[in-house]
Design a protein around this nucleic acid. Structure first.
Lengths: 181, 181
DNA sequence: GCTTCCATGTAATAGGTTACATGATTTG
DNA sequence: CAAATCATGTAACCTATTACATGGAAGC
């Protein structure tokens, strides 16, 4: 899903400015499966306006910069619904942490322990934050996403507690001859 | 982690051709947290050769196209170890599936059920495939990654079984007024 | 007084994918 | 006989990030 489609989806729920869309993506429930910068969002909204999928109203405010409120059009609604009917593409997941664990033989054990500690703490912190926000969900989609995120962080914490010994224990044991092919 | 660093890391373990590196990434344990196309790998290897981080030996084969075997240099080893000492960047996760669940209000229920069924099947299939490959791991890193992947798919299957009712049940109940901000 | 929030936009850059180009050999 | 495997490489394209550009107001 590209930025344009994401913006369209959020505008189905409520009109918003580019700045608000950025906040909704980064701080909201969508942050689990998506992120985008303002440098991507603003051009996307201009493009959507050109294509007639959204309308744009410029508003002057006092003591605040001018802003542009975007609203989805009927054409935009149809386009978004069409997009949702397409088969979802495969997830894309990139993790430097898992890469580091994969290549742990090339890392000093002290560094390894440090990374594992930080990772455990990271997931635990996220889980705690989500528990407080759990009640705030206002749609089934949001509830589902919040629970998914909680499950994700919880299972990561548990996995690390149960399996980090694998990497920490016999670190310098053996590195020879893993087949690349 | 970019393609160059990934290639370097795999070459630490064993010499390989570009084609073999592609297979190692796509079919191997790294596929969980990384992917790259040949169109990215070949230029990356040329660049690594230019920079003296790997050496390249051209070999003619009969009944097979010529190939280039890459081996990591001391400079390459050092560079890779330096890279691993950098703090790992945050994971990047993109999921059209989760996006579709987030926007489930804009989808017909029949389509929703279809997507959920496919997703459950996908994770179950992956889990089954991993169980067969579990014994093949030849390093602690590979074992850790295999177990991580199994945990990931297993917890997804369980989550879907336990929580899909949220989306399927009161689908048309209420869509109003979720705050974007 | 410094940082963050509000608010938009452009340009340079990075980092990739997909398609094109080529072609023998093996497997189903 | 068609498809997949082996094997490399380039060019066009896409999509997004980061940095730059601007500037007042509110919070700490």
């Amino acid at each position: 899903m590209d930025v344009r489609t994401m913006c369209l989806g959020l505008l189905v729920k409520q009109e918003a400015t580019g700045y608000e869309i950025k906040k909704a993506i980064t701080n909201g429930h969508a942050s689990i499966f998506y992120d985008a910068s303002l440098g991507a969002i603003y051009p996307a909204l201009n493009r959507l306006t050109e294509d007639g999928l959204v309308t744009c109203e410029e508003l002057s405010q006092d003591k605040r910069p001018d802003k542009k409120v975007y609203r989805i059009t009927t054409k935009g609604m149809n386009t978004f619904e069409m997009a949702l009917l397409q088969p979802p593409t495969a997830d894309k997941f990139r993790s430097d942490f898992l890469a580091a664990m994969f290549f742990c033989g090339q890392m000093p054990e002290s560094r390894l322990v440090e990374i594992l500690d930080e990772r455990e703490e990271f997931h635990a912190d996220r889980l705690a934050a989500l528990k407080e926000l759990e009640q705030e969900s206002q749609s089934v989609g949001e509830t589902f996403l919040t629970r998914y995120a909680m499950m994700y962080h919880a299972s990561n914490v548990q996995f690390l507690k149960e399996n980090r010994y694998l990497l920490e224990a016999d670190q310098n044991e053996d590195d020879n001859a893993e087949a690349v092919q």
